[in-house]
Design a protein around this nucleic acid. Sequence first.
DNA 1: CCAAAAGTGTTGTTGTTACACCCATGC
DNA 2: GCATGGGTGTAACAACAACACTTTTGG
Lengths: 226, 226
Amino acid sequence: MQSIKVSVDAVVFGYDPEEGVSVLLITRKYEPFQKFWALPGGLVKDEESLEAAVKRELKEEAGIDVTYLEQLYTFGKPERDPRNRVVSVAYYGLVRPKDYHISAQTDADDVAWFNIKKLPRLAFDHKNIVEIAIKRLRGKIAYEPIGFELLDKKFPFSDLEKLYQVLLDRDVDRRNFKKKIMSYGFLEELPESIQRSAGRPAKLFQFNKKKYFELQERGYNFDLFI
Amino acid sequence: MQSIKVSVDAVVFGYDPEEGVSVLLITRKYEPFQKFWALPGGLVKDEESLEAAVKRELKEEAGIDVTYLEQLYTFGKPERDPRNRVVSVAYYGLVRPKDYHISAQTDADDVAWFNIKKLPRLAFDHKNIVEIAIKRLRGKIAYEPIGFELLDKKFPFSDLEKLYQVLLDRDVDRRNFKKKIMSYGFLEELPESIQRSAGRPAKLFQFNKKKYFELQERGYNFDLFI
DNA sequence: CCAAAAGTGTTGTTGTTACACCCATGC
DNA sequence: GCATGGGTGTAACAACAACACTTTTGG
């Protein structure tokens, strides 16, 4: 008779042009790894789908609703949970941190965003899971447009540029990058401008949802190798 | 108390220049879906890793040892098994069918290769799983060298060409394809030739394992968009 | 008038595609 | 000598990378 438990874990990425890319973490209320930072997640209920389980846990533990979630990988080494065998299906999601007020709920003591370059020690094999999610996110932006989920509705072009620079961890030529992005036609220039600090005010842009999702569907045909 | 079972399923692809790409299937010995064709797989044991479980099931049901396996996706809809809740972690693998003698073992009545264009009705949601695996395989060959696992040790260049044509499901320009593949340097030309039917004898090639795996490691840097 | 950030084109280089004829063999 | 499959190069075109100065604003 099998006695393996099934859980889900979520790696939710947020992006802020000032802060860079961060991950949502909670502190564990109970043993094992009590008070350690960990990914939101928990056991799947008998009647709910895996995706429903992730969404429920995110709501229960961090108080947020994440709409964009994708399955990442399933972690199933027998020794990954010290108590008993737990197979965990990990998901990753993208959100704009500003859109949410995160707050510790019943199942967690604390909730916070951590920059992916300054992660604390994590419970279980969660460090490994986060690393794999970052790798996936980096890979993904090379062949699919990402940004819709991570940027404000209206944003200056430099925000998108910074997002790619942070995720790819290297410089990107401003002129070539803009040329390429604009050639796909999923970005619209607005008549408005903003100025967020010194310097010339920046025109605002927004995604053309229809074209954006059309391109996202096509997947690997989209060739955004920067 | 959670009562979800964890299983694994394997989509093993084989390739033969004459036959094209095929998938390994078994017939189920027991209910539900008794006598239906299905993917090899079964429940994970409490102490074994997911990958060990797939390998064990492939041995038990089809009598083969598959070395190259990758996790595909985890299927967890509550209704996918009519008896009880089963979350299944699917893997896919690549082999040279000729290297193996497949044979029905204790847990299966029959084992056979099926061309991916002529699949029978499958048990559970296995049709869906196979479709997703084919999509993944197609995507993968666009950015990683594949062939080592699917072709003979020594093969004429046209075998590789046919493999790509079958997987991509379209014509590939022979001259351009050869130019591109050879430019990566993971293929070595041998002094030998073979002649398999009418026509001029073909020079044999083999993979330079070292360079091949170096390129495979790099993953998406490898740009084999044909 | 200086500092800060935004905006904008051209050119050389590289990679991609399209395309057709000759070669070696068996029958 | 003909049918079969193998082998090979070039030229036009498209995509990519490198590169620096001007504009608009606030202080």
